[in-house]
């Protein structure tokens, strides 16, 4: 039996302006709305596709931060078998080293032979969750994955890893393993609101608690918002001048080959 676990992370919804805490070293979280990390949604989709193909059991697990219940109910509405919310003293914005340790703790009591996470998130200051988790669990890891196949016996996975220039590497690794998903084999499915509401009425989210020790050992000195000018900076002069200026801008940003 294939047991897939999808750890999902909450990140601030960028549709609204980010707010900075008066301390200047953290986000102001009071009015922030959270959404599931976009690539975790791809990881979930990939898990559901594997479930349909292999009758796998899929569990989503998440730390109790942000608007996690809504995300977990949506996952239940999409058809996962189990949703677990983890509480603990990790605060409202644990870093990824902390999150990975907490997850390791919970995974100890949860059968798993494939762990799928989004390969990265917009708030990964101390590194990407999937690879950190794989190291704490001492499991093999491949990131930037956009295709997953499980062999008949459920003992190994063949994955496609994205390389620069549209090239993909085909890699094989034994299970259990952790994969960092870049894109599911099809776009994350839509879940109708009536399904979500039904899940809210009838399904349950399991609760576990776990200890958080240590952290990523980095210190945030300052968070600020980048200056955004109102509109474009206009380049002037003859066509040649304009061309030269654009080339200069691209070169400075390492965009030219």
């Amino acid at each position: 039996m294939l047991d897939i676990v999808v750890p999902i992370k909450q990140v601030p919804d960028l549709v609204e302006e980010l707010e900075i805490d008066p301390s200047g070293t953290a986000l102001g979280l009071e009015r922030t709305r959270f959404v599931v990390n976009e690539l975790d949604d791809h990881a979930l989709e990939q898990a559901l596709l594997l479930k349909e193909k292999h009758q796998a059991q899929v569990s989503v697990i998440a730390l109790d931060v942000g608007d996690v219940e809504e995300t977990l109910f949506m996952a239940l509405a999409k058809g996962v078998d189990q949703a677990i919310k983890i509480s603990g003293d990790f605060g409202p914005a644990p870093d990824n080293h902390t999150t990975a340790r907490v997850l390791k703790d919970v995974l100890g009591g949860l059968s798993h032979n494939l762990i799928l996470t989004g390969v990265q998130a917009i708030d990964d200051l101390d590194g990407q969750l999937g690879i950190l988790l794989s190291s704490y669990l001492d499991l093999p890891y491949v990131g930037l994955v956009s295709g997953v196949q499980i062999d008949e016996g459920g003992s190994k996975a063949t994955v496609l890893k994205e390389l620069p220039g549209g090239v993909k590497a085909e890699l094989e690794l034994p299970l259990p393993a952790v994969l960092g998903i870049q894109a599911a084999e099809q776009p994350p499915r839509y879940v109708p609101v009536s399904r979500v509401r039904q899940a809210m009425r009838t399904a349950t989210i399991e609760e576990r608690s776990a200890a958080a020790e240590g952290n990523g050992h980095i210190r945030v000195r300052r968070i600020s918002k980048p200056q955004v000018g109102a509109g474009a900076e206009l380049l002037e002069g003859s066509s040649e001048d304009i061309a030269e200026q654009i080339v200069g801008i691209l070169a400075d940003r390492g965009i030219l080959r």
Partner: peptide, 24 residues
């Protein structure tokens, strides 16, 4: 509704609009 419920052939542009409405 049947198509949305079964997640069959829902055009992506529509899905985005519905998700936006739900969320925002």
């Amino acid at each position: 509704e049947a198509l949305l419920m079964q997640g069959v052939g829902v055009p992506g542009e529509l899905q985005t609009a519905l998700e936006n409405t739900f969320r925002h």
